[in-house]
Design a protein around this nucleic acid. Structure first.
Lengths: 327, 327
DNA sequence: GCTTGTTGTGGAACCCGTTCCATATGCGCT
DNA sequence: AGCGCATATGGAACGGGTTCCACAACAAGC
């Protein structure tokens, strides 16, 4: 591979001149420009980004950590994040952390080793201490990773309330509530707290089914729904993440009960999959594109070294009525 | 940030010794090891991967190009690919190419600029010439990108036949067939050819609906299904990709026809989404994990510089019966 | 005593692009 | 003529690792 010195020699100029030409920095005469263009074409020269990276101590790569890329929430998030990163001139390194617990640590270490310029962490980690130590650009998606790490999330309290009010308005009396794992205090748990609070206010009984921590595959959702049904739990209204809600709805239909006639469903997240099932799922919709854009925006600002107060971002949620509720 | 020279100075040794210690290459006395460990701890030293990359002319990063990461086929592929790459010590750069046509070119250019060591291309590109020029490790997922570029795909002919035979065995007489875009000759088109061939042999009439090239979002699938219904096309059997088949099934149910009573469905790909709808979709299943593993295996061998005949890989498909067919 | 081999170490040269300083020319102005 | 400034260029030093060569010390073998 031809280097900048080869080009300089070929064109009969110094390396500094070649560099100035390549980066449009400083003076280069028209005559020299022509010579350089010819030399570069002749040698099929391409700048080696690695050398640039070394000098500038940055790669333009952002690591995005998610527990499970196949889960619609994360695949939509990743898709939007990639597009937004691209706009800023960043490349995205994707890190699926479900497979091995130490993969997450390894990916974090890339920050220190200068392989990535920043990290957007959408993982449900237990080891928060790790993050606190790192003084590098990190943005957390819907998790608390330490006081200095900005969080991007939605108004989960409103989301929980919307879901509860919808099921109440639909006349549900026996609620089945799929709840995320509570091992780690996370923003998203607020929706469950609020949901339960509203239900209690209306004296409506709920059955809480707590999911395992950090499981996001539909096979698992199917398993827990089977479990619910085998236990003979009765319900006429269901609230849960898109996955559990959909699997539960399917099993409900298979056991010859009508949706929304006999059982109403409201799911949380509102990923595309809620519109791919029949009947369409009524859902509290998270603005996933907005979450992705804000995450990228934040990481960009952190890398730029701009510090500011109130770094956390909270976006709005809304209810999208489908056909699993009447109202 | 401390450099290797700082460590050398701190420990009172030469840089070569530090490097040998770090890489377990060459002799380092026990006494020196202790001094170095202390110096590194004191300076909080971490090797700068960028400098290593520059010397070795590699980054350990593989670019994976897909048109739409939210589509279950690609998100599953990417998930498995990431896990497999991780096993080989590679990191994955994810490139969503749907958004802008020139993004693909830009990502390919990273090969020349030494940013990535290899490319796994799952894109539906029109500009095959680009790929032919690049003499770098590239593996194509289910596409032809030039004679020198190995292709990983499945036995689409068998897949098309399985689908056709299933619908025939179910007694279907009027087939609706969603066909992928034919702009580019691709391995996957073989399934459509074979499907039509078998149908013709049995004198069964089919209506072919050709999809736009390079569209993989469910919003689009919904649109084309609406189009089919508005045209009043009649059918009692449907074959298409997971997405079109599912959207078509949903619309069929909404128009009060029974599945599989009135209309049978067989979809192609068999991603997890076919098991998340009710009734479960009968599908020709592509071994996505196998495709991902083979792709990574190939790229690894290409980077290692091993050349061999018959580079292309063809994996088997099988039919998974769901509840959208009777037999 | 001399060769040979193993262990151990320092540092220059290299990978390749960037930056900055030294230097030089030409032009306009006083 | 002398000064200031824009234009233009070469090349050393730098970023932070890796490799290789030169050189030493010491033990074993003849």
């Amino acid at each position: 591979m031809a280097s900048i010195r080869d080009v300089a020699k070929e064109a009969g100029v110094g390396v500094g001149t070649v560099s100035r030409f390549l980066n449009e920095s400083g003076y280069v005469s028209e005559e020299t420009r022509v010579k350089l263009e010819e030399a570069m074409k002749k040698l099929d020269y391409t700048p080696n980004e690695l050398a640039r990276n070394l000098y500038h101590k940055k790669t333009g790569i952002i690591a995005v950590l998610v527990p499970n890329i196949s889960n619609p929430f994360f695949s939509e998030f990743v898709g939007y994040a990639e597009a937004e990163l691209y706009k800023y001139g960043f490349k995205m390194m994707l890190c699926n952390t479900e497979k091995e617990s130490n993969a997450e640590l390894e990916y974090l270490d890339m920050l220190r080793r200068h392989i990535v310029d920043g990290v957007i962490a959408g993982v449900h980690t237990l080891d928060v201490e790790m993050y606190k130590k790192i003084q590098k650009p990190i943005v957390a998606l819907d998790r608390y990773l330490g006081e200095n790490i900005p969080v991007v999330s939605v108004d989960h309290k409103k989301g929980g309330r919307l879901a509860a009010e919808t099921l109440i308005a639909n006349g549900c009396k026996k609620i089945l509530h799929f709840k995320g794992g509570t091992e780690v205090e996370s923003p998203y748990l607020e929706r469950h707290y609020e949901f339960e609070r509203v239900m209690k206010e209306h004296n409506i009984s709920t059955t809480c089914y707590e999911l395992e921590w950090n499981r996001f595959d539909f096979g698992y959702y199917r398993k827990i729904v089977k479990d619910v049904f085998s236990k003979g739990i009765e319900f006429d209204g269901v609230f849960g993440g898109d996955g559990p809600a959909i699997e539960c709805m399917n099993e409900t239909i298979r056991s010859h009960r009508k949706v929304p006639g006999d059982v109403k469903f409201v799911s949380y997240d509102g990923t595309y999959i809620t519109e791919v099932v029949e009947p369409r799922m009524t859902a509290v919709v998270q603005p996933i594109e907005g979450l992705a854009k804000e995450s990228v925006h934040l990481i960009h600002r952190l890398i730029g070294g701009r510090i500011y107060q109130d770094k956390n971002v909270v976006l709005d949620v809304e209810l999208r009525k489908g056909d699993t509720t009447v109202i």
